[in-house]
Design a protein around this nucleic acid. Structure first.
Lengths: 177, 177
DNA sequence: AAGCCTGTGTAGCAAGTGCTACATTTATCG
DNA sequence: CGATAAATGTAGCACTTGCTACACAGGCTT
């Protein structure tokens, strides 16, 4: 059991149960080892969480790569629709649920959370830029505009205000009814 | 020490220290009482949190009321600028920091968090509608559009991507450079 | 073969968690 | 005043938290 072979098991547990349940003994159980060994491999819980969040950010990046469509979208609205469909996919749900815990931790100043949040958002923004329509007049600014809208939509969806966000997107003119 | 006189003290502690540190003994210390008495007044920690989050939602609503400008904005961009300036205000920072913990809890299915999140977002949306320009062609949809943008901006700001959001707002055409 | 480093199990510690039992004070009402 | 109820203090329980001390195996080099 090396450190690298443990990370996927730990990530799986955190993705389904959340960061609140991420204490050493449950994590160890999920990875088939003991709290003693987790500390042996990672040094401390803080270091473990840093490694783990880093690993999760990598997995997220890989998931985005895998989801990257071959051909570009024809309009900004199509980009938004594609990404939101992507966000609704079952495979992305655990990431979304985890995301808000990471944001909350980042705001509270926990360094590893900040790092993971930045990494995941950089990844998403980069991906978004590649997805912009070929004839977009301002792909860079447009990607940032869409990212802001998308994140707002995801947040509203997370608190049962999905309809609000949907109506907002309709009013933006990006989506057709 | 009645239940209602305790709530502001508890809210103050939670607003500055976060929900992660909200265990009975620290809360009791902040309110000048004992864990024993908190349970006596609220019945259980779960009930306490429900009451507390409800109270915080009320305080938030009051803060929004107090911040409501007298005259309407002239354009959607001005509405966004006003609200973001409002969000940057020191008085709102504790609410913002708490907000993401509430969202994270809501996503994990904790009922009282969901309720508080809904209440606060309903309040903000209602406030936003009153702030829309008088000549806006679609105040209701527009408010939802702006809400989505604003929440996305706040989230990006929370993870050091404030510049990204700002560029996005510029690209949206709502804000002038 | 002797020693040593890496990996692992067992047991435990001090602190903190929500909550409870019991006793006691304080206030209210007949 | 005396009784009854509401409010509070003191101790503690069973459990979880991150982390550590100690022992002990197995394979490695010399």
């Amino acid at each position: 059991m090396t450190r690298d072979s443990l990370l996927p098991l730990l990530a799986a547990h955190v993705l389904t149960h959340g960061l609140g349940q991420a204490s050493l003994r449950p994590l160890a159980r999920a990875a088939g080892t003991s709290d003693r060994m987790l500390l042996y491999h990672f040094g401390s819980k803080e270091a473990l969480m840093a490694d783990l969040l880093g690993h999760i950010a990598q997995v997220y990046a890989a998931a985005l790569d895998a989801a990257m469509g071959a051909e570009r979208a024809a309009s900004r609205g199509e980009v938004v629709a594609r990404i939101l469909a992507q966000g609704d996919a079952a495979a992305m749900q655990p990431f979304l649920a985890l995301w808000w815990e990471i944001v909350a931790g980042a705001v509270r100043g926990i360094a590893s959370y900040r790092t993971a949040a930045r990494a995941m958002m950089d990844e998403l923004l980069g991906w978004l830029e590649t997805q912009m329509p070929a004839d977009d007049p301002d792909p860079k600014g447009g990607a940032r505009y869409l990212l802001t809208l998308i994140e707002g939509t995801l947040m509203l969806g997370a608190i049962d205000h999905g309809d609000t966000a949907h109506d907002g997107l309709l009013a933006s003119g990006l989506l057709r009814p």
